[in-house]
Amino acid sequence: MKRDPLARKGLLRRLPEAWRQPLAVAGVVIALGWLVIALTAPLLAPHDPLAQDLPRLAAPGPGHWFGTDQLGRDILSRVMYGARVSIPLTVVLVALSLVIGGLLGACAGYFGKWVDESIMRLADLVFAFPTVILAMVVAAALGPSLTNAVLAVLVVAWPAYARVTRGLVLGVREREFVLSGRLLGFSAWRSLRVDVLPNVTGPILVLATLDIGTALLLLSGLSFLGLGAKPPSPEWGAMVSSGVEVFDSWWVATFPGLAILTVVLAFNFLGDTLRDALDPRTARAIKERAL
């Protein structure tokens, strides 16, 4: 960890400045707002999100500010509870793809040869499909459920981390402090853990921030297609989907959609600013991978 102090200091010096940018502040504020809603939904929500005791398809008004859906459920309460479904799942999803993709990419970059070849060709194969299409194909094969949708997104999400991590590890692998570690007798794993990984985490975390938005869009998209959350669940994508049937009652789909938009926007605001604060070369690598 103590090796290459300059790189770490440089990153730390730049980060606080980035966090002060208006877009980053907006992103943090919106994201924290949603976090509070997710944590306190049972206290904040005016109604039970599953109770069907209100008039059906009532327009927004006093008592039900976001209106009610075709089963007489309060949309405001459902949107609030939806934060408890979508946000934790998305964070877990991104964390998992970061760990899986990051480890595979680090191995590929560090060990090279057939390890590199086999991992990266697998990543190429995933990149050969447009993301929603592959996620849809995997989710359909596994059978519709929220867990399977998460698995499907995981399948399409890990290669981006593998590529970025591999590229960064390749850049660090031959540096003196890594080589001197090996000469001191560090095993490959210790060298990877102690010398290499700490020096590549910054850009990968930025990629993860940007990826939260993409992952949420994918996950809610799968639910919209009926391949994710099952009906009574107040998942936002599934709620938009139920609004399609009654599209003249605009509020049914509009509010859950706005919820998705604001969460994704918050993380894109934050990620975009953080990315600009990174070293331009790694920043560009991330930008191209984040497609």
């Binding site: 869009l217 609004g243 599209f247 959609g257 998705i260 938009l261 926007l265 894109n268 975009d272």
Partner: peptide
């Protein structure tokens, strides 16, 4: 343009399609 393009990549496409259909057609 930065804010607009970030909004552009953050909008759920399926939702936007529905909103556009509702607003412009309906």
């Amino acid at each position: 343009l930065r804010v607009l393009s970030l909004v552009g990549i953050s909008v759920p496409t399926f939702w936007l399609a529905l909103v556009a259909f509702y607003v412009f057609f309906f």
